[in-house]
Amino acid sequence: MARDERHVVRNPNGGWDIVAPDAQRRSGHADTQAAAIDRAREILGNRNGGEIVIHGRDGNIRDSDTVPPGNDPNPPRDRK
């Protein structure tokens, strides 16, 4: 199974879109890139984790972030 991804890309009409690869529609939209990244993190957390691919204003990938599952049935044990 492929890793779930969401790309944060600039919308030519303003703001930032959250899109899944090969999707017909966007997953979300925000006025700022930071808000779009937060929303992408929330979406992926609810979908068992994945990867946020962050594009800069020029469209090139500038960063990525791995999101852990939101409700991990087997979370790592706390080591003390």
Rank of each mutant, 00 (worst) to 15 (best):
E51R: 15
H55D: 06
G70P: 11
G45L: 02
D65W: 08
E5L: 11
E5D: 01
A34M: 04
Q24Y: 08
L44Y: 08
R62E: 15
R6A: 08
G59V: 03
E42K: 14
R79K: 11
A20Y: 07
V8Y: 12
V53D: 04
A2K: 11
N48R: 14
R25E: 10
D72V: 01
N46E: 14
A40L: 04
G45P: 13
A35P: 09
A35S: 12
N48F: 09
P12Q: 12
G56T: 04
H55R: 10
I18G: 01
I43T: 09
D31V: 00
D72I: 05
A36T: 09
D72W: 04
M1R: 14
H29I: 12
H55C: 07
Q24P: 03
D17K: 10
R26D: 08
D31Q: 14
I37F: 05
T32W: 02
A30G: 03
N60Y: 05
M1W: 08
L44T: 11
Q24A: 14
S27A: 15
R41E: 14
G15T: 02
E42D: 13
I61L: 04
A23E: 12
V9Y: 03
R39N: 06
D38R: 11
A40K: 09
M1V: 09
R57A: 09
V19T: 10
R10N: 03
G50V: 08
P68H: 08
N71E: 13
G56C: 08
N71K: 13
I43S: 09
A23D: 15
R3Y: 04
E5P: 11
G28Q: 04
D17H: 06
D17F: 02
H29G: 02
D63T: 01
N48G: 15
A36R: 06
T32R: 02
R41G: 11
R39W: 06
G70S: 09
D65N: 09
S27P: 00
G70L: 08
V9W: 06
H29M: 12
S64W: 14
A40R: 10
I18A: 05
Q24S: 13
W16F: 13
P69V: 00
A23P: 06
N60E: 10
G28E: 07
I37C: 09
R77D: 12
N13V: 00
N60M: 03
D58P: 06
K80G: 12
E5A: 04
G45W: 07
I43W: 15
P21C: 03
R3L: 14
A40I: 05
E5R: 15
I18M: 11
R41A: 15
P21G: 07
